[in-house]
Structure formats: C-alpha cells, structure tokens
Amino acid sequence: MSKGVLLVNLGSPDSTDPKDVKKYLGEFLMDGRVIDLPYFFRALLVKGIILNTRPKKSAEAYQKIWWEEGSPLIVLSERLQGKVDETTSVPIALAMRYGTPSIYDGLKELKEQGVDEVLLFPLYPQFAMATTETILVLAEELRQKHFPEMKFTSVPAFYNHPDYIRVLGNSIQERLQNLDFEHLLFSYHGVPERHIRKSDITNSHCKIDGSCCQTASSAHQFCYRHQCYETTRLVAEYLNLKEGTYSVSFQSRLGFDPWLKPYTDRTIERFGKQGIKKMAIVTPAFVSDCLETLEEIAMEGEEIFHEVGGKEFTVVPCLNDREDWVKMLSRWVDEWAHQKPVEA
C-alpha cells in the first residue's frame, strides 16, 4: 500500500467579505457536533438568527487580522504542510474541516498521488466533539462514498505526549524568557459543558465538579476538559512554574447554555482588577494562529486588561510552523510510515 498524510485544521472564510463569512459560519455552525441540537432547532438558531446578525461583525473581526497572503490560519497551515512535506518520506496534503481546501479535496489529492493508506492528522492536541471527532466522522463518510479503497489511521489526541509538551513549553519559554510577567494564563477554546458529558464513555465519571478531571478514569481518553488541565499541568511541570503563577480559562462561548468555566475574558478582567500589572497568555488548543488568538485574545483581551489597570499583556504565538514543531510532526509521520507507532 502507498501511504500519505492528511493534516486537518479548522478552516477559514475565503475572504473578509460578509458573504464569504456567512457561508463559512453556516457550514461551521450547522455541524451537529458544534451546535448539538436537533436539526430543526439548530437550523432555526443558525439560519434564523445567527446568520442574520453575526456575519457582518465576524467579517469586521477578520478584517483586523487578515494578512496580504490571506487568512492567517490558512497561510500558517500551508507553511506547516509545506515544511513537513519537504522533510518526510510520504506525501503530505492539507485540508480544512470547514471551507477550503476541503477534506474531500485533500483525500482526492492524495489519491491522485497513488495513496491508498492515509494517516488522518487532526491538528488539535486535545480531543473534542467539535474538533477531532467531527473531522474523523466526516472523513469516514467521504471514504465510504468516494474512496472505498482507502484505509485510514488517525492520530490520537497528543495533549500529554512528551514531544508536544516539550515543543509547547519551549515556545512559551522563548517568548517569556526576558519578561518579568506575574501570571501566565492558559486559555483554551471553550465548549458547552454538555459536550463533556456526551463524550464520557463511562456515562458517569464526568461531573465537572473540580475533582473528576484529577481522578483516573477511562473517560479521560475523550474528555476535553481533563486534557486541557493535563496539558497545563505538564507544561507547568516542564517549565517549573510556581503554584499560583498560572491558571486555566476557556474562551469563545456562544449562546446561553453553560460552557466550560472560568471564562477567559472575565478572568483577564479579574486579574487586572486584582492588581496584576503584567500577564502573559498562551492558547494551547490551537496550533495555528487564527481569529480566536489574533483578534479575540491579542486585541480584545489586551483591551480588557488595559481597561482595568493592567500594563503589560504578552501573547505567546501558537506553534505555527516552528522548526521543532515541524521536526516533531515529520518524525511522527515517518515513524508511522515505517510501522513504528507513536506512543506517549
């Protein structure tokens, strides 16, 4: 069999035009693993309300962070794909879960290169319904319909893999080594609390009560909340961070249902009001800088911090196309290609 790899990231609108943003948001928010309501109610919410109000505002946000080459997330993902492709022994294709290039496009590209065994590589360190799961489900649907001759293998969540912790830890250390920051905030993308419970394979462990994530359980294999806190714990250990100098929060909530807490915007505000003058923030749920990191955190977050008295607000870039990140991915790909499983 001929092997190849499909790197998959979230996606982006084709442009900052509200029409393109509306198209992208429609595909994204109508995914039943993003807004997990019955279709009728999901369509009523998304098509009846959100898509009539949000595209213009989101387009304005994208305009603030858009690069000359295009969407930062797409450009950075393409750079990563190109570098990994140059340093591995098998073809590397790139796809987005929403927008272009699609997962279908990526699989078709690999097929045209003679590939019939694909390593699906969701570019998410932590597992979540709305990220890794939706990629794997759609890829399998496409395989059955269009690529039945293909065989899939998927990379599991790598939130606790020593290689990843080292690369993430080094990226933080490099950015902050000469800064006298008082607090480091690990901000992860938020998800509704019900997603955590739905992903609980034991149907009983996840209570989101402050203790279940620290209690050993098979549920942790698919528990986004546990994996976020574990990423933070391992990085803090790697960097020898002192207790009380770092914490976890969750960003980008939508609607009125309870989402994972504490919320990033309120946490930034609270630190400023408590007298923290110098804070840093890192976003380990993302491997590529995007709207949520460049606008929501680096712009809105800094504005909130300054409004309540904060002075210095430092954002750690995502891994993007860092050389050590590229080397890590390339080594994992080659180990898979030569039948050497990547293990934590």
Rank of each mutant, 00 (worst) to 15 (best):
C223F: 12
I92P: 12
L329I: 15
I208G: 09
E296K: 10
P317T: 13
T202M: 10
K242H: 08
N52V: 03
T267E: 15
Q144P: 00
A95S: 14
E237Y: 08
Y39P: 10
H220V: 05
E141M: 11
P317C: 04
G169V: 12
K327A: 15
N160W: 08
T245D: 07
K111L: 04
K207P: 07
Y238P: 02
P72V: 07
V315E: 02
L44K: 06
C213S: 14
K19F: 02
P91V: 08
V34D: 07
S330P: 05
Q227F: 10
W336R: 09
P262E: 06
T16E: 03
G4R: 09
Q144H: 08
T283K: 02
W332V: 08
K145L: 06
R197C: 05
F271E: 15
Y224S: 09
V282P: 12
Q126S: 06
N170R: 14
V167D: 01
I74F: 15
L7Y: 06
A130V: 00
Q221I: 09
A236T: 11
I50D: 07
K145S: 11
D289E: 08
D116P: 01
F41L: 15
S58G: 00
D14W: 02
R194I: 11
N178S: 14
E68S: 10
Q221T: 07
C212F: 14
E300S: 10
F186I: 03
E141C: 02
Y98D: 02
Y164S: 03
D31P: 07
L107E: 06
G244C: 13
K22N: 06
D105H: 11
L44P: 00
E133G: 07
D105C: 01
T314Y: 02
P162W: 01
E86G: 03
S77Q: 00
K261G: 12
A337V: 06
Q126L: 00
E86W: 01
L44V: 13
L138D: 12
Q274K: 15
K47G: 14
Q274I: 01
V287W: 05
K23D: 09
L37R: 06
Y104S: 01
E312T: 13
F28D: 03
Q214Y: 15
E27P: 00
V90Q: 05
Q339V: 01
P284L: 13
P341G: 04
C213W: 13
F158D: 02
G26L: 05
G70C: 04
E303N: 13
E112W: 07
P55L: 09
R54K: 12
I135H: 05
W259L: 03
V316N: 03
R225P: 00
K311W: 00
L76K: 11
P262N: 10
P192M: 11
R42F: 12
T53P: 01
P284I: 12
A280K: 08
G244R: 11
R54H: 05
S249C: 14
V326E: 07
F286Q: 09
V333P: 01
L329Y: 04
D20I: 03
I268D: 06
T53C: 02
L291F: 01
L184A: 10
F222V: 04
T87A: 10
R175E: 14
